[in-house]
Amino acid sequence: MTSVTDAPPLRPLTEPAVRRDIQPEKVLSVRGIKKSIRGKMIIHDVSFDVRAGEIFGFLGPNGSGKTTTIRMLVDLIKPTAGAIEIGGFNVHRHPEEALRHVGCIVENPEVYSYMSGWENLEHFARMQPGIGRDRIDEVVAIVGLEQRIHDKVKTYSLGMRQRLGIAQALLGRPKLLILDEPTNGLDPKGIKELREFIRSLAGQGMSLFISSHLLSEIQLMCDRVAIISHGRVRAVGTVDELVAQAGSYVVWQFDQTEAGRRLLAEEGVRLVANDEHQIEEGILAPMKEPIVAQMPAGRIQDLVEKAVRVGIGIRSVQHVAPTLEELFLRMTEGESIG
């Protein structure tokens, strides 16, 4: 996995805003788009709005149509039906006006590897009026690439290419920044920096559209989210609403695992066998003998007290969010979606 530790951290433009102003104004509006490729329907029905100043998550498993949708947003693919408007302009009928307000990275940050970072930025600056040297300097400083900007891009790490891609996307002072799986290939430190960076951009009034297949990532970054699977948007809402609908697990660790398990069972807590839950492996792996339960959060206090009374030591109790797969499972089971 490529690391970004060889580059200075992405620095937030301002202190991360505590509360951001999300305007009702729609920066991006997607209405009923469909796409069939070679006779096969890939996108059945996708609609959502992104408002000014919000971080909008686009969540879906791999192959659900995320990238295809993003390609339609930026006029790489024409939708078979439906309309996409950016800043009030139809992307496919008025690409010059619409894309003026957009910066994007589709899939990987692809830049010309035989040129330096600076030359790449100059190249893209020439494609829009009114972007001069000073603006290039500015975006280079924003992504913290000053040290290496005159080196050939082929010597960059993935993290640095990512920064260069973001710098390129920011050149035209976009109202909307579209990032496709931006944390792919970054190490945890890089992911954290990116998250802060994204928040600081939103703090300045920019809207961000971020796709991901990881619920946890979207949860940490986004204000609202659209969930897509099999080419259909299943739900649009705030992240908290959606996660609350999916319910979560409570994972217990006792010093006497068997006694603990008996206690929970006696108290009528629904225990979930290891092959039934779909918690990400990485979360449970470091835990010693975890017991996964489904129960209202309000009962935790009560159960802890009972355990202490009968002399069962508690190592930990924690909430674990369901995985994206689980969220889908529930949504497609026909439960109501906000």
Partner: peptide
């Protein structure tokens, strides 16, 4: 190289 995606998503017809 995939740079076509960068090239065609700029506001140029």
């Amino acid at each position: 190289t995939g740079t076509i995606k960068m090239l065609l998503t700029r506001p140029v017809r």
